[in-house]
Design a protein around this nucleic acid. Sequence first.
DNA 1: GTCTATAGGACGATAGAC
DNA 2: GTCTATCGTCCTATAGAC
Lengths: 183, 183
Amino acid sequence: MARRERSRLPAEQRRGQILAAATALVAERGFWGLSMQDVADACGLTVPGLLHHVGSKDGLLVAVLEHRDEEDRRALGEPVPGDLRELCAALVRRNAGQPEIVRLFAVLAAESLAPEHPAHDYFAERQRKVLGAFADLAEPALARQIMATMDGLQLQWLRDQAGTDLVAMWEEAARRLFAGRSG
Amino acid sequence: MARRERSRLPAEQRRGQILAAATALVAERGFWGLSMQDVADACGLTVPGLLHHVGSKDGLLVAVLEHRDEEDRRALGEPVPGDLRELCAALVRRNAGQPEIVRLFAVLAAESLAPEHPAHDYFAERQRKVLGAFADLAEPALARQIMATMDGLQLQWLRDQAGTDLVAMWEEAARRLFAGRSG
DNA sequence: GTCTATAGGACGATAGAC
DNA sequence: GTCTATCGTCCTATAGAC
């Protein structure tokens, strides 16, 4: 009866492991389809062991999203372009290198349209922020269209990842979006 | 012990009732989050009663999607515009009147990115068809951008349905998309 | 920090009666 | 066409030992 060897890790390190595993599984199944058992297995933990760290299933999702926000703040610690076209290009280049994260957000963004979804408020606020940031650099309608184009192209790209290049698709789209402007 | 009055319906009528209930619940929760119990309750049936009609949970999803395709074929029985800009405007006007259906597709489109999702192949094929149809009337890159814009604007619209007008958002976007053309 | 044990349900599906 | 009864599995969460 060989039982899986379990190691005792420092809390911070274990937390990182849990968030990585949960990110992958939420991207794959969404939140409704996520099972705490699967997350625990992926970490070599039992379910109560997992719950010790995150409190509840909802707590796990919150932790994943907060962790992403931290990473984003760190990555954009680089000088943020004041030019909207360059800012978008930077965002797209970054996303093209982390399809799993893009998928996490794509799946949760759709799932969380339901008002009682635990990430509903998070994504409502996120949309408000992104549109606001873009609208500081362009007219509001263009801001909406830019956000829509990025989201839509990402979905296409995730669906047939074989033969598509997200960055190239965006460059081509940007040419039309920014046609009547300086950049 | 008051038990819910249950009626015995002709199969075809019952099927319509089931598909309507399932459409609403899948739009709300996605496929992973859908419970056969909830569908059965909404129809005044027990779960085995429901399964008699749809075979399995996967079978129910297939039936919902096939039913949508039929409805779409019927609705576009109208003369289909040969002009891409007019075709898109017609699609958007139609979608603006049925947010629940738009949400059904938005949620399933994201969820089905996972290869083992029961609707994965359906949505891969759907993207192929839509891009193909658009590309018959415009260059391929523009076709991608148009589809992306429609999908992305719909997500924004579903998220803050309070104060946004899908048709107006699209018209504004179309002006930029079709800027260098005849229409 | 992680475990065992367990509570207490919900799940999808089947068998067989009516 | 719908039911009751039931199976076997999965689920989140808690209590308490180590």
